[in-house]
Design a protein around this nucleic acid. Sequence first.
DNA 1: CTGTTAGCGCGTTCAA
DNA 2: TTGAACGCGCTAACAG
Lengths: 345, 345
Amino acid sequence: MSNISIKDIAARANVSTATVSYVLNGTRNVRPKTRERVLAVIEELNYKPNDIAKSLKRRRTDTIGVIAEDVTVFNTPEIIDGINDYGDRHDLHILLTNLRLDKRIGRDFDNVDKYKKYATSAVSELLSKQVDGIIYVGVHTRDLSGLIDTEGKPIVYTYGYTQNDIAIQYNDEQASYEAMSYLVQKGHRRIAIISGLMDSIPSRLRLNGYYKAVTEFELPFDPLYIKMGDWERESGYRLTKELLALPEPPTAILSMNDVMVVGVLEAANEAGVKVPAHLSVIGFDNREFSDYLTPRITTMDIPLHEMGYQAMEVLHNLMQGKKNEPMNMPVCRLIERDSVAAPKK
Amino acid sequence: MSNISIKDIAARANVSTATVSYVLNGTRNVRPKTRERVLAVIEELNYKPNDIAKSLKRRRTDTIGVIAEDVTVFNTPEIIDGINDYGDRHDLHILLTNLRLDKRIGRDFDNVDKYKKYATSAVSELLSKQVDGIIYVGVHTRDLSGLIDTEGKPIVYTYGYTQNDIAIQYNDEQASYEAMSYLVQKGHRRIAIISGLMDSIPSRLRLNGYYKAVTEFELPFDPLYIKMGDWERESGYRLTKELLALPEPPTAILSMNDVMVVGVLEAANEAGVKVPAHLSVIGFDNREFSDYLTPRITTMDIPLHEMGYQAMEVLHNLMQGKKNEPMNMPVCRLIERDSVAAPKK
DNA sequence: CTGTTAGCGCGTTCAA
DNA sequence: TTGAACGCGCTAACAG
């Protein structure tokens, strides 16, 4: 156990504690010979500075509080990885709080009262720990205004936003537009879309991208091609059945997540419709399993790592009082696999 | 920004800072009237104690350093969730370090020198931050002796172990034995196993469980039923082809992870062998996608949450100098789905 | 320019 | 119930 303090170093090197501190931080010039001697003693005693004491005086901890709504939800680890990536490069540490919302309240996000207490006490603990800033990692994009009060500490949101704070979002509209372009380029005209729940922002934005593509490429617009799903596999299954039963079924389906694609494939399979020969499918999320399905699913990859990284970058600037230049919105990337082909004539 | 300190409270309540501290911590009796007054002022000024100052004096931070080899690897988030679960219940906070090994060095774990520097500096930073203990979360069970030196601070390993420290492991042998029992009970006798890499501890332990079952249930033992895979899908595919080409092919396959099951299904499909009608399969890991494959895969769930929870519990005892009674080894649980049926006569 | 002294940051806790 | 020392490192002020 190292109870060695700066005093011990000072004593053994025959200098004052101030000098040791200056050597350690390069805050001031120290004669090379003295510096050598101090460094040698530090090495010899394997001294490790006490960051707690340092933080108390500096009124800065170089620590960021991360509030994750649920670390076990698929998007969170990759965002945290991005946060760590930036943190490593700038000597910022991460105090992680996991609200565990999925296990505690499931998907009942409307009932804010159920989890406000968790969020509030998380913030309170982080403030007591004197974090220099906070990143909130939601599981699902929505308005979080009023959920927490950081009492002036800088905060940045991902997968969520408020009226007043900075939030990092990726470009949903562009993503679905790009997926549509790809399908069109492959020769598709009759393209259906299976959305997520319509109270969801990404659902609406992606629908915008869909409309935009339909308009720009002058695709046949049929309201029956627009299906409201609920993010779950069963809705993919059910809605695909409906689509396939249409007098003029679509030749391609854009599904707003990969989970619903599982249902799409089941329905196609049951109906004897081959994917991609008779029906093309694109998913969203690039979940690991999308590569394990048959056929391997073409899907939009969400820039999670970049979102975490950018959130930290923006927060870091905020902490230093720098203005944040408007940054590029992270964009999705199409992962081409085997679920899209040219339509049969 | 709250710059209110205990002094402000003391002044406004006409007491000494000591009294405020006693009220806050209940460390000593305070006359009810005084206590009321202090509490009122605290409320009024929305005072939040500074844990940094507190930690400096108490020489204890109530913070645990978690070193994760990679948070984006599938088992890690659930382990962290277990850590948080225990932490929440005992007012312990988590300082998270992510070594990001998967991105930095891939699977090249043999080359310790490549990541020793990351691990060492992670420990060093955590010690400087004065964490009360450390949990190391590996991505893959192996001997980590000599990787890091915590200088006397208590440490507990999961997915990894050393010669001298405590490590939380789940019961691998029991898991494969139980999977085998289940297959036998369904009527299978000719059961093959596809292992992971054989330099892996879990591979060997699970093979032990397999042997034990073969012996106890007096199954026909055929060395050709034992296939060495490498955890990857392709090996599942290739080895299943070999198994199906045998003069007496197995009626069931136990695969040491779910990823290889993907390959098993592909091979079976190509050979026109129906799962589970003609071939039963059990996987390992209960990966989310195992429920999305066709058929839905029966698999062994690994008690990740419990491992994290138990690691914290053990560490907490260590921190308090308590002896750790031997605890129950976390056990896997069979998730029954649709990939196992009775064998055809 | 180099080195030292001493007070500070904020709660905790002992002696009185 | 209180005054004051203390935990450890930083840094302003000062001396040589």
